Lab assay of single mutants.
Amino acid sequence: IDAAQIVDEALEQGITLFVVNNRLQYETSRDSIPTELLNKWKQHKQELIDFLNQLD
């Protein structure tokens, strides 16, 4: 699994991931984030931050 897949998966569930001051953040209108997704974010945090920083 790679960062792009995780970002896409989040988007499919209505969650936008982004980076502020090198910290992973998210925006969503959902009430809660699925635990499975949160765990993936934690496991791949640095990859996600690097990936999202490249997009900007």
Rank of each mutant, 00 (worst) to 15 (best):
I1G: 08
I1C: 11
I1N: 08
I1Y: 11
I1F: 13
I1D: 07
D2S: 13
D2C: 15
D2F: 14
D2V: 14
D2L: 14
D2I: 14
A3P: 14
A3I: 14
A3M: 14
A3R: 02
A3V: 13
A3F: 09
A3Y: 09
A3T: 05
A4W: 10
Q5V: 08
Q5G: 13
Q5T: 10
I6M: 11
I6E: 02
I6F: 05
I6Q: 01
I6K: 01
V7G: 01
V7K: 02
V7I: 14
V7S: 01
D8G: 13
D8F: 15
D8H: 15
D8Q: 15
D8E: 14
D8C: 15
E9K: 03
E9A: 05
E9P: 00
E9M: 05
E9C: 05
E9F: 05
A10G: 03
A10T: 04
L11M: 11
L11A: 13
L11H: 08
E12I: 09
E12W: 08
Q13H: 14
Q13T: 04
G14Y: 04
G14N: 05
I15Q: 00
I15D: 00
I15C: 04
I15A: 03
I15N: 01
T16D: 05
T16R: 15
T16I: 15
T16W: 12
L17V: 02
L17H: 00
L17D: 01
F18T: 10
F18L: 10
V19A: 06
V19F: 03
V20L: 10
V20N: 07
N21V: 04
N21H: 07
N21R: 06
N21S: 06
N21T: 04
N22P: 01
N22T: 04
N22C: 12
N22W: 05
N22R: 05
R23W: 08
R23N: 14
L24I: 07
L24E: 00
L24A: 00
L24H: 00
L24F: 04
Q25P: 00
Q25V: 14
Y26C: 08
Y26H: 04
E27S: 15
E27K: 15
E27V: 15
E27Y: 15
E27T: 15
E27C: 15
T28V: 04
T28P: 08
T28A: 06
T28G: 05
S29L: 11
S29R: 12
S29M: 10
S29T: 11
S29G: 08
S29E: 13
R30Y: 06
R30V: 06
D31Y: 05
D31N: 09
D31F: 07
D31V: 09
D31I: 09
S32I: 11
S32Q: 11
S32D: 09
S32V: 11
S32G: 07
S32P: 11
S32C: 13
I33C: 03
P34C: 03
P34R: 03
P34G: 04
T35R: 11
T35M: 13
T35N: 11
T35L: 13
E36N: 08
E36P: 06
E36A: 11
L37C: 05
L38E: 06
L38T: 06
L38I: 11
N39E: 14
N39Q: 12
N39C: 09
N39V: 11
N39K: 12
N39I: 12
K40P: 01
K40E: 03
W41K: 00
W41S: 01
K42S: 12
K42F: 13
K42Y: 11
K42Q: 12
Q43F: 09
Q43G: 05
Q43L: 13
Q43P: 03
H44Q: 03
H44V: 06
H44Y: 15
H44S: 05
H44M: 07
H44N: 07
K45S: 14
K45V: 13
K45N: 14
K45F: 14
K45A: 15
Q46S: 08
Q46V: 07
Q46E: 09
Q46G: 06
Q46N: 10
Q46H: 07
E47T: 08
E47P: 06
E47R: 07
L48W: 01
L48A: 00
L48N: 00
L48D: 00
I49W: 03
I49D: 01
I49R: 02
I49Q: 03
I49A: 03
D50W: 10
D50R: 12
D50A: 13
D50Y: 10
D50H: 10
D50F: 10
F51A: 02
F51N: 01
L52P: 00
L52N: 00
L52Y: 02
L52H: 01
N53K: 12
Q54L: 12
Q54A: 14
Q54P: 06
Q54C: 08
Q54I: 09
L55Q: 12
L55A: 10
L55R: 15
D56G: 14
D56W: 10
D56N: 14
D56Y: 13
